[in-house]
């Protein structure tokens, strides 16, 4: 089933890594919904959260192809694992003296923040998962959205489990850890299926 999938990858913090990842997605025809990259707990590594549109088989391929990049240290598909995901949106909403109160009511409902005020507009900051941001946007549309920007998704596993990459010390262990991460079998409709 086609759906939005969340992949977390740790990559070496080197020039050109983003280009390698982007090149791979373009070349293999994978559809990136969003890609967010930034520092993580370990110096020298960056953490990418990639939201991909596709069926399970495609997402499995994305992970396997990503892992082939030398600069990609770990790849994990966390779509079906308990996790927290968030994105942030800044929305510039048209608001005058006549309707500012109504806009602020919506802001309050979404537990959003007003981060800038002008006589004819507000900038609202919405933080939440994709669904919440979508819903907020829909509500603000009635007032007129002058401008909007979303960060794309970041995500983290719940509980004590992490997506941290395997340590380098033992190559066999590293291989085993990687295989476990890539362990999800494709379920999608492949050309051949005898059972």
């Amino acid at each position: 089933m086609a759906s939005r999938n969340t992949i977390v990858a740790h990559v070496e913090d080197r020039p050109g890594v983003l280009a390698r990842v982007a090149s791979l997605f373009r070349r293999r025809g994978f559809n990136i919904e969003s890609l967010t990259v930034g520092h993580c707990e370990e110096p020298g590594l960056s953490r990418m959260t990639i939201v991909v549109d596709g069926d399970d088989h495609q997402v499995d391929q994305v992970c396997r192809q990503l892992f082939k990049l030398i600069d990609v240290v770990s790849v994990q598909d966390i779509t079906y694992v308990p996790m927290v995901d968030r994105e942030l949106a800044l929305i510039k909403v048209s608001a005058s003296n006549f309707n500012r109160r109504e806009v602020l009511d919506v802001v309050e409902v979404f537990r959003a923040d007003v981060v800038d005020v002008h006589s004819d507009a507000l900038i609202v900051q919405v933080l939440g998962d994709e669904g919440k941001v979508d819903a907020a946007l829909k509500m603000f549309e009635q007032f007129g959205i002058l401008e909007m920007v979303r960060t794309g998704r970041v995500a983290m596993l719940r509980g004590t489990e992490t997506t941290k990459p395997p340590a380098i010390s033992d190559s066999q262990q590293a291989a085993a850890a990687i295989r476990a991460m890539l362990g999800r079998r494709p379920e999608g409709a492949l050309p051949f299926a005898s059972d």
Binding site: Q61, K68, L190, F192, A193
Partner: peptide, 12 residues
């Protein structure tokens, strides 16, 4: 190559 496995065919 792990990426070749299951790329074109379902593999038992």
């Amino acid at each position: 190559d792990p990426a070749e496995i299951g790329k074109n065919f379902k593999t038992h």
